[in-house]
């Protein structure tokens, strides 16, 4: 055989071996679940596996965009995924999701009405709410003695180097937009420019931009004012009782992570079974207790311990929620966001 021939043979062998092993996944009783990291109680998965005799392959992603690219490229046949609101909007637009057969998800009735029929998925044809939350200000009341009710406090010179912002384009730009009185989903280039300017002005006051470490920094007292997601706030307050969480009066972001079935799934019925399972009151309650975020499941809320049920952090008042917006899919506008965020981060 010629040298080239040998090379081709070796390459073919490798590809064949690869296919054989990926083919091994194609068993009947397997579900591929694709979720955020640290976002489910492992015992819940085990219970599902035991009850229905279905093996669960559980993998995680770090950002919505990451998950989107994976699903778009067709890598891995995920049966259930947990994207956020604006990403679901995009995926519906691009026809990447199956319509749900609600008959297979009877426990959907446990979900609170106000979380059904939201803008990103009218009539919930494609998704079922999993967890939700808000974005707000976490502060240490021993250090910040004044009343905290506005985003303005994060621009206060008094707290130079005590402030932590989220290292996330949309969340930080969104905070600035809200402070200026604009919509978090603004596509007005002038409004965005103004948001950019105040974020640049704020930069010298900011201790650091992080994503997951906000709660650690605030628990440890390294910073005393921070923008956090409500789930992190709950966890932080648990560790440090001097911390308090507030949704500013200008309004904030309310977000949803819902369960969807990507069109790459080959087990639609079993996927719906899983979604239904997660909506069971006892399962949802246990899961909520473990993960620490806010559940949309009314029956589950009943089963939660008193202090959590009544927590204004996890379950704020109606009036607070009314001031909050859901993110929309920026689609092609994302390049403008990118430039603006780069200009903010590169300014030093």
């Amino acid at each position: 055989m010629t040298r080239l021939g040998k090379l081709v043979l070796v390459l073919c062998l490798i590809m064949i071996i690869n296919f054989i092993f990926t083919g091994c996944d194609r068993k009947e009783d397997v579900l591929n679940i694709y979720n955020w990291g640290d976002y489910i109680d492992p015992t819940v998965i085990k219970d599902f596996e035991d009850e229905y005799n279905i093996k669960v392959n559980y993998s995680t992603f770090a950002t919505n965009e990451d998950m989107y690219v994976k699903l778009k490229s067709g890598a891995g046949n995920y049966d259930v995924a947990f994207p956020s609101d604006y990403m679901i909007e995009r995926m519906i637009k691009e026809d990447m999701l199956y319509k749900l057969d609600k008959n297979n998800i009877p426990n959907l009735k446990n979900i609170d009405e106000k979380f059904i029929n939201l803008s990103f998925d009218p009539e919930n044809q494609y998704s079922v709410p999993y967890f939700w939350g808000t974005v707000g200000i976490l502060y240490n009341r021993k250090v910040v003695k004044e009343k905290v009710d506005s985003w303005d406090i994060l621009w206060d010179e008094k707290y130079k180097n005590e402030i932590v912002m989220l290292d996330s384009q949309r969340d930080s730009i969104g905070v600035a937009l809200k402070k200026l009185g604009y919509s978090m989903n603004s596509r007005d280039i002038n409004e965005l420019r103004k948001a950019k300017e105040i974020l640049i002005k704020q930069k010298p006051l900011v201790y650091t931009y992080v994503i997951d470490e906000v709660k650690d920094l605030m628990i440890a007292g390294e910073a005393n004012l921070g923008v956090v997601w409500s789930g992190d706030a709950t966890a932080a307050i648990r560790e440090n009782e001097n911390l308090e969480y507030v949704i500013p009066k200008e309004g904030s972001n309310i977000w949803f992570d819902n369960m969807v079935i990507p069109k790459s799934s080959k087990n639609k019925k079993k996927a719906e079974l899983f979604i239904d399972f997660m909506c069971r009151p006892d399962i949802a309650a246990r899961n909520t207790d473990y993960v620490g975020y806010s559940t949309p499941n009314n029956e589950a809320i009943e089963k939660l311990p008193e202090d959590i049920k009544n927590s204004k952090v996890a379950y704020p008042n109606e009036e607070d929620l009314e001031r909050c917006e859901i993110f929309k899919d920026p689609s092609d506008f994302i390049t403008k966001y990118d430039i603006i965020w780069t200009e903010i981060k590169a300014e030093y």
Binding site: A62, T63, E65, D66, Y68, V69, D167, S168, Q169, K203, V206, Y207, T208, Y209, V210, I334, T335, Y337, D338, W341, T342, K345, A346, Y348
Partner: peptide
């Protein structure tokens, strides 16, 4: 750097993880 100093590596990371603009 506390995320305050964007370097070229961060820019590339941003495109792949956040903007999705490969």
């Amino acid at each position: 750097g506390g995320g305050k100093y964007m370097l070229i590596g961060n820019l590339v990371e941003q495109q792949f993880l956040w903007s999705g603009d490969w």
